[in-house]
Simulated scan of single mutants.
Amino acid sequence: MGTGLIGTSVALALSARGVTTHLIDRNPENVRIAAALGAGTAAPPGGPVDLAVVAVPPSDVARTVAEYQKRELARAYTDVASVKAAPYAQCAELGCDLTTLVGGHPMAGGERSGPLDARADLFTDRPWVFTPAVETSENTLNVALELASLCGAVPVVLDADDHDRAVALVSHLPHLLASLTGARLLDGEEYALRLAGRGMRDAVRTAGGDAGLWADILASNASAVGAVLAELSADLGRAAHALDRLAHGGPEQRGDAYEELTGLLRRGSEGRDRIAPSLGGGAGSYVWLSVAVDGPDRRAEHLLADVSTSRVGLERMVLPDESVHPDGPVGLLVARETAWPLSEALRDRGWAVQRGTAGAGPVPADGAGIAAGPARHAAAM
């Protein structure tokens, strides 16, 4: 239920693994587009399916689950909303069968929310959080875990409140900051906007998301987002005060202010290091691309030139050991959301590219990390 970016991507991944997938959406045009992409069928199922995937905004989850449980659409239900505690509490208030329900949240997405931007590999190597409650049956959780496996994701089990605090920090706050930063551009002079480079574009990248959907998300997780925003506001206040003293204070004030500003920036660098990838292993946010360099026109410097043309930043680069295998592949570590477009761009320029997980090393086999499971019958809603 819901054939936007996430719902259609789930359906594409399941259909690619041989799962009979039914598409349901209040917008018939979205269903037609998703079906045309090969995500499944618009025909209703003839009986209860194994799993219903509820891909609707957080405030619509409980109503949707209640409605389709009454219709006996499925034997198990999970959602993909980025808030977990509030929708579950609302399901309980509506009298939903909680034994057949488990909250879920795949940690993947994009700037746009429609089915045209859906991809079957959207969840590959990405965390997929599940928040089972005491009422959740073992079968319901197992079917949901199989869903994540079929989509190539990495299952993570968390308490609902722990999940909501985590995504407030690593997902909801960054989106809010991107939107607020983007709003500052409305008042910018035209000459200033022409100077905007990659730093600003990266900072506002996610601001293009659906404003209504994100207002729903933030409202549903208001307490957790508000708490981390208050902490950030305190740091912003300290930074503003330091800058004011640097601009208008005496020599002693400027010295203290400079130290405080440096401390704030240093803490930012230290925080960034906690999520930065490492060569020996890393978060699912990063992907190794292994690129063959085996000819005079396929040298590392030529590869770097083509990467630069693609306007994709590299996190790491590993050159082949010239004493062992001088013509071996070059390993490129990139943010997961840029791996697919960079791979396609390099292939268009004649490079042979393979992809693997951040922890698999620079020469992984294609499809690493995807676990197979028996065929299932699902409804992507």
Rank of each mutant, 00 (worst) to 15 (best):
2 G>H: 05
4 G>V: 02
8 T>M: 07
12 L>P: 01
13 A>Q: 05
17 R>V: 00
17 R>F: 00
20 T>I: 08
21 T>F: 06
22 H>G: 07
29 E>H: 14
30 N>P: 00
30 N>S: 14
35 A>F: 04
37 L>N: 08
39 A>F: 06
42 A>R: 07
46 G>Q: 13
52 A>Q: 03
53 V>M: 06
55 A>W: 03
57 P>R: 03
58 P>I: 05
59 S>N: 08
63 R>A: 15
73 L>C: 06
74 A>C: 08
74 A>W: 01
88 Y>H: 12
89 A>F: 03
94 L>A: 13
95 G>R: 10
98 L>I: 00
99 T>H: 08
100 T>R: 14
103 G>N: 08
105 H>G: 07
105 H>P: 03
112 R>S: 05
115 P>W: 02
117 D>V: 12
122 L>M: 12
123 F>G: 05
126 R>A: 14
129 V>T: 11
129 V>K: 08
132 P>L: 05
135 E>C: 04
135 E>M: 02
136 T>M: 06
136 T>R: 05
139 N>Y: 01
140 T>I: 03
148 A>L: 09
149 S>D: 14
151 C>K: 08
152 G>M: 09
153 A>S: 15
153 A>I: 11
155 P>C: 11
156 V>Q: 12
158 L>T: 02
170 V>I: 15
173 L>C: 09
175 H>P: 02
178 A>S: 15
179 S>R: 13
180 L>P: 02
180 L>E: 13
184 R>N: 04
185 L>D: 05
191 Y>N: 09
199 G>H: 06
200 M>E: 00
201 R>N: 10
202 D>V: 06
206 T>A: 14
211 A>H: 09
214 W>F: 11
215 A>G: 15
217 I>Q: 04
219 A>W: 02
220 S>I: 01
222 A>Y: 03
223 S>L: 12
227 A>D: 13
231 E>R: 15
239 A>V: 14
239 A>D: 06
239 A>N: 07
248 H>E: 14
250 G>V: 11
252 E>F: 10
256 D>E: 15
256 D>N: 12
259 E>A: 15
259 E>K: 14
260 E>I: 12
262 T>V: 09
262 T>P: 00
263 G>D: 15
264 L>S: 11
265 L>H: 11
269 S>Y: 03
274 R>F: 00
276 A>R: 10
283 A>C: 00
283 A>Q: 04
284 G>T: 04
285 S>V: 02
286 Y>K: 01
287 V>E: 02
288 W>I: 03
290 S>Q: 05
293 V>Y: 01
293 V>D: 00
296 P>S: 06
296 P>W: 09
297 D>A: 11
299 R>F: 00
300 A>T: 13
303 L>S: 07
305 A>L: 11
311 R>H: 12
313 G>D: 13
314 L>K: 08
315 E>M: 08
315 E>P: 01
316 R>C: 07
318 V>A: 14
320 P>Q: 12
322 E>R: 15
332 L>H: 05
333 L>F: 06
333 L>W: 04
336 R>T: 10
336 R>H: 15
339 A>C: 12
347 R>H: 04
348 D>T: 12
348 D>Q: 13
352 A>L: 13
354 Q>A: 13
355 R>W: 00
356 G>P: 04
363 V>S: 12
368 A>S: 14
368 A>Y: 01
369 G>S: 09
371 A>Q: 12
377 H>C: 10
378 A>I: 11
